[in-house]
Design a protein around this nucleic acid. Structure first.
Lengths: 236, 236
DNA sequence: CAGGGTGTTTGCGATAGCTCAAAACGGGCA
DNA sequence: TGCCCGTTTTGAGCTATCGCAAACACCCTG
């Protein structure tokens, strides 16, 4: 277990207002681990023994129904925390976390959280902020699912992914991790078939370029237009 | 402005782990106000000058799209906090809060939050817990909207309302505040027409008894069955 | 007690998106 | 290099739910 360089994480929102020497103390309680592509980090319903800070790679958090349907709760990008069950008073993970790319994360034992929060109250405040933001985003998503059609929802989802994990290319913006039609369907509350049809259409119009688990937004602005277009203002 | 009796609020999750004398200090910073039925407490987009703890009544938090569509984010019951924009680092309210019944709330100025959290770190921890729980619920709602049909979603919504704000009657459980078909539609991502049709059907089967802004679950268990029934297992 | 207004019910198309089915595709691995 | 498997595409019906429209019922007010 290599020692973590504080300079790599000092700027993260989680550690805002934490003194460098304190940060070192916090990091001493963590270990780091590597997760190969497609490996599970934790399973929904399992005992929440740890919480995580993603350093490299990308992680998909998904929730499964008793009947086996899944939705993608979110994609975790480097610098973000996940598996914070303890912070919300849960003892089990409410979702499953899978590395969608080779990934590296810092891991703290859940049991360390109360002590850390006591010693460094800004941790609680910072986490509150993050969780609050996620709650907002979650409400936005509900609003979208209630009021928008599938095409607009897919547009919004891609734009968010591009903002969070977009890689600038000459030809456009590429989503920087493998993502399937199925994944997008599970983010937007539709089926992979519908997503496929939509992307095919967009490809024809030159809005995107896509392939197996790969999407490039060639005309981000055009997609913004789609995302904001009111349901009936179709091109005559 | 009458002084608030600590015994009324001491047991609330928000104040868990706060010493009685500290609680008094916290309450000294608050004032209380009365909101008549159907009055606005704050508007989406307005400057978040205060945060609230509901003492009596019921409050509906709703989010509006640029195009005027609304969804109900949640109903606030007595003992719950709302308008915590500051906790999540926002300066404007992300939703509109309306008293659906004559209501009374404690009000703190947003500016007091940082000081309070500094002096009483358990406030942050407790709030984190609450917000985390709401995030969970929010994810559950997304899961439902993605995977269930309208009838099941309405069933779940009513069951949650009954649990949160149900009043036991001989004939069943009554939702203890005025709620319209439209409101339920905005909680479940459908239209008031569809909700009306569903409730009419249920009324025929003796599952509910309902009228103008009033719903009584006459057979809660029957509704649980509906809520959990897989999409296709209709009665032949 | 009548009037007006909000909330509710119900009918009747219209349709977005689902389901089922099958073929084509692409990439990694032996 | 060729095979195999997971992913994507596309077609063709089907239906749950919406959208519109109109009639209705209840409650509060004057």
């Amino acid at each position: 277990m290599a020692k973590v360089d504080t300079s790599l994480v000092a700027h993260l929102p989680l550690f805002a207002g934490v003194k460098p020497e304190d940060l070192e103390e916090i990091l001493r309680e963590a270990r780091s681990a590597r997760y190969p592509k497609n490996s599970a980090i934790f399973e929904q319903g399992a005992d929440a023994q740890s919480f995580f800070l993603l350093l490299h790679g990308h992680v998909r958090a998904a929730k499964t129904t008793p009947t086996g349907e899944q939705i993608v709760v979110r994609y975790v990008a480097p610098g973000e925390t996940f598996g914070l069950a303890m912070a919300i008073g849960a003892t089990r993970y409410p979702a499953t976390a899978i590395a969608v790319d080779d990934s590296v994360a810092l891991i703290w034992p859940t049991s360390a959280w109360p002590r850390l929060v006591e010693r460094f109250p800004s941790l609680a405040a910072n986490t509150l902020q993050t969780v609050g933001t996620r709650l907002q985003e979650s409400h936005t998503r509900i609003l979208e699912m209630s009021t928008q059609q599938v095409e607009q929802r897919v547009a919004h989802a891609l734009l968010r992914l591009a903002k969070q994990s977009g890689k600038k290319l000459d030809r456009g913006i590429e989503i920087d991790f493998p993502i399937s039609r199925q994944d997008i369907a599970q983010m937007t509350g539709t089926t992979l078939h519908t997503v496929s049809r939509i992307l095919s259409g967009w490809e024809q119009q030159g809005l995107v370029e896509s392939g197996r688990q790969r999407i490039i937004l060639r005309d981000p602005h055009g997609i913004v237009v789609l995302a904001e277009r009111s349901p009936d203002s179709g091109v005559a």
